[in-house]
């Protein structure tokens, strides 16, 4: 018996990185899953491999957002869970960030999450309740200058989660955020649009002295989507190995490795 038996879930940006990990874990836990993504070939490959359904959609196109939600609801026969995950990152300090990069990051990471939430809420109410989990970032809890616009977008997402939790709660809809640290495969390995970004072996490690995995994030998303998370609403959960717990958290991991 799975922890998500009978759950009908939509995962945006579900064809790669954290989204793919969430989709596969949800499937293993018994959920029926539709993933959205921009890459048709990758979507079809994942669909065949993991037994999920795929709908092509770019979150920057608001028409595509609503039509992908309609298509997902038709395929699943309703909707219980939205995992908003589709996002982009741009490596630059704010003072060096161009208008184009800022617009791309805010449009996808913030406006895209808002559009998916608003498009899904009526379906979640029709199902008698459900949950929305937004994949945010530890940079939304404590900013990172190297990824300025991304940090801003995730701080705004965390506030979106809080506002949605209050307005959707009375309908039995829980809204929460998962804030991963550096995760592989994940956002940090896709920097600059390259499919192979910086080698995780070179990353600064959190106190737990290892790189986060898609499975770590999928575990938190499963908790929020399942009955185990029944009283979590407006929760902002760090899944970062302790990286944001102290000013100098990373120095602890270095000591652990040197020992």
């Amino acid at each position: 018996m799975g922890r998500l038996d009978g759950i009908r879930a939509l995962v945006t940006g579900g064809t790669s990185g954290i989204g793919a990990s969430v989709a596969q874990r949800f499937r293993c836990e018994g959920a029926a899953v539709v993933c959205t993504g921009r890459d048709e070939a990758r979507g079809r490959e994942l669909a065949a491999r993991a037994g999920v359904d795929f709908v092509r959609a770019d979150v920057r196109d608001s028409g595509a957002v609503s039509s992908s939600v309609t298509a997902a609801v038709a395929r699943l026969g309703g909707l219980d869970v939205l995992v908003a995950n589709a996002g982009v990152i741009h490596e630059a300090q704010l003072s060096e960030t161009t208008d184009e990069a800022w617009d791309a990051v805010l449009e996808t990471n913030l406006t895209g999450y808002y559009l998916y939430a608003v498009a899904c809420l009526p379906h979640l109410r029709a199902a008698g309740g459900g949950s929305i989990t937004m994949i945010s970032s530890d940079a939304g809890v404590w900013g990172e200058t190297a990824i300025g616009a991304y940090s801003v977008s995730k701080r705004a997402v965390n506030m979106l989660v809080a506002a949605l939790a209050v307005e959707a709660g009375p309908h039995g809809i829980r809204v929460n955020a998962v804030c991963p640290g550096d995760t592989a495969p994940g956002m940090a390995t896709y920097v600059g649009g390259r499919s192979e970004g910086p080698d995780p072996a070179s990353w600064t490690l959190p106190p737990l002295a290892r790189v986060g995995t898609g499975a770590d994030v999928a575990s938190a998303a499963t908790f929020f989507a399942s009955a185990d998370g029944a009283f979590c609403n407006g929760s902002i959960l760090l899944v970062d190995g302790g990286m944001r717990a102290s000013l100098r958290a990373s120095s602890v991991a270095r000591e652990v490795k040197q020992r």
């Binding site: 940090s151 801003v152 705004a156 809080a162």
Partner: peptide, 17 residues
Amino acid sequence: SVMTAGAIAVAELFAAE
């Protein structure tokens, strides 16, 4: 509220930079 949270993040990041 969402945009104001983002604005505070902008203020913090400019401070660090």
